[in-house]
């Protein structure tokens, strides 16, 4: 008898996504789906989709969903959760959405301590609109609105959202993870699971920033994009838990520094 050893999570629809080859949105969707399944939350989960590459997330998750306008997913999540505290509410947002136009909404949602979970996908660029500079774009990184590379004297330095949110006094779970290589991905899932668990227990606001690749807009083949992330983003965006509701704000990095990704160079 054949045995099923690998299948799609029930929290995901049986559909093909529109994401580009080498993009890690699909991996992150799957991790969220697995966590929702493992915690048995599918039938009481409402997701909030952003504006950005994951605007169509509602077509990929097998949970009820709410489309939000650009940057407002944390406000929409607040509305859903306050109206129905029994629901599990997660917002799925990219870096232009969360760290630029939605800066006010994410900070105040976190500061109010809304019992929601935010999955924050940071790929250092605007994907859907065609590769413009994001608040998270790296110094010198070329984008369609900074063709000579990000000039930090004009555009400022990339915003480290996990660090920024972790400065708030309100208890929260704040972590940063990456999915550019398998071991990191295992860790990212563990962070997501903790984030959802805190919500299930009604403990606090939780956010996991996940570093992600965008080969199309970075202009790199997928394998090189993975290496670029490791070389450029990891040093600037350190991984780890930045804040926990118990107060031990900067726990040691769970992975103890860099772990060998498959360098294509």
């Amino acid at each position: 008898m054949p045995e099923t050893v690998f299948s799609r999570p029930e929290a995901l629809q049986q559909v093909t996504t529109h994401y580009c080859p080498g993009c890690t949105h699909g991996v992150i969707h799957r991790l969220v789906g697995e966590v929702v399944d493992e915690l048995g939350l599918r039938e009481r989960t409402v997701g909030i989709a952003p504006v950005g590459c994951s605007v169509l997330a509602y077509n990929y998750f097998a949970t009820d969903f709410h489309e939000a306008s650009h940057g407002r997913a944390p406000a929409v999540a607040t509305g859903v959760k306050r109206a129905r505290p029994d629901l599990i509410v997660f917002a799925y947002q990219g870096d232009g959405d969360l760290a630029s136009i939605g800066m006010a909404e994410i900070m105040h949602c976190a500061n109010r301590g809304e019992k929601v979970t935010v999955v924050f996908v940071n790929n250092a660029i605007y994907g859907m609109t065609g590769g413009q500079m994001a608040p998270t774009t790296m110094p010198g990184q070329i984008a369609t609105t900074c063709p000579l590379g990000r000039d930090v004297s004009l555009a400022g330095w990339p915003i480290r959202m996990a660090e920024l949110i972790s400065t708030l006094r309100t208890p929260a779970f704040v972590a940063r993870a990456s999915v550019h290589a398998p071991l990191y991905t295992v860790n990212a899932k563990a962070m997501l699971k903790r984030a959802f668990q805190y919500q299930v227990e009604g403990t606090c606001f939780s956010i996991v920033e996940i570093l992600s690749t965008c080969p199309t807009n970075w202009g790199l083949p997928p394998a090189e994009a993975t290496a670029w992330l490791e070389d450029n983003m990891l040093p600037y965006y350190p991984l780890g838990v930045f804040k926990t509701p118990g107060g031990e704000d900067r726990a040691p990095l769970p992975l103890g520094g860099r772990i060998g990704a498959s360098h294509a160079k």
Binding site: A68, A75, T78, G79, R82, A83, E105, H108
Partner: peptide
């Protein structure tokens, strides 16, 4: 935090 946020909060709440 703003009327922009308020209008999106009522949007989320109304969706339930």
């Amino acid at each position: 935090e703003s009327e922009v946020a308020a209008s999106n909060m009522i949007y989320g709440a109304a969706g339930t």
